[in-house]
Design a protein around this nucleic acid. Structure first.
Lengths: 120, 120
DNA sequence: GCCGTATTCAACCGACCGGTTGACCACGCC
DNA sequence: GGCGTGGTCAACCGGTCGGTTGAATACGGC
């Protein structure tokens, strides 16, 4: 069953070789052969990696004679940053709130921090 | 063999259930039982998911009687955003440069865009 | 010391993943 | 039309993954 986009993107970037390919595509488009050259693995293996990136929407490809140049689609990366940033922020906010509660406990040692927080 | 941190984190978040767990931990710490409650899968399966998040450094746990409350470690998320943002920016910059070249070609149709770019 | 609760460990299973090799297709060139 | 080049498809292999079940461990309460 088709995993959601976000899972695909995270999963695609979970592989060092694929991250490396993305890194190199960030500096400019490249063909499969060019991309495969630095690695010791077979061309087919790299071709598969590219396919995964393509399925995740991270890479698009045109035709140019028999060559299939790969192009990085950077917008998809936003999907991830948005997800990550959302929860990072939430966690940070909660952290700050906790700090505030602790500070208040310092000032008024008698107060119950839990009722204070749930009342806010 | 221990995959690098970045791979671990990306891989950990490639699973929807684990992303969901992270999302819920962003709103506050929780025990394994609490985290497992919404899902239909076994408690052990959720326990494994948490282990993966822990190994990736995304979650830490304390002891509190027999309970093992989970806490989200949001700093690790920065590792990812830094990686992502770096290459997103690189790609965007390249895009802008390309735009500039194209604009110049419009102005001076005789100029060779390739030598122009490599000369800069 | 025993019981219940919270959690983990261990073994197993089917599916998927990253890699291989070998055959195949698409195109430009002569 | 045949050849070289660029790339993919297909079948296979060992390893990991997400899930299961069943047994074990760790702790607080009585």
């Amino acid at each position: 069953m088709p995993d959601d986009r976000l899972s695909q993107v995270f999963s695609a970037l979970a592989d060092p070789t694929r991250r490396d390919i993305v890194a190199r595509l960030a500096t400019g488009d490249a063909t499969v052969n060019e991309l495969a050259e630095p690695y010791e693995v077979s061309l087919q293996a790299v071709s598969k990696h590219i396919r995964v990136l393509e399925d995740a929407g991270l890479v698009s490809r045109s035709r140019e004679a028999q060559r299939r140049p790969c192009h990085l689609e950077a917008e998809v990366l936003d999907l991830m940053t948005k997800w990550i940033e959302r929860y990072r922020r939430e966690a940070e906010d909660r952290f700050r709130r906790l700090d505030a509660v602790l500070a208040r406990m310092d000032e008024e040692p008698g107060a119950d921090p839990l009722t204070e927080e749930s009342a806010s």
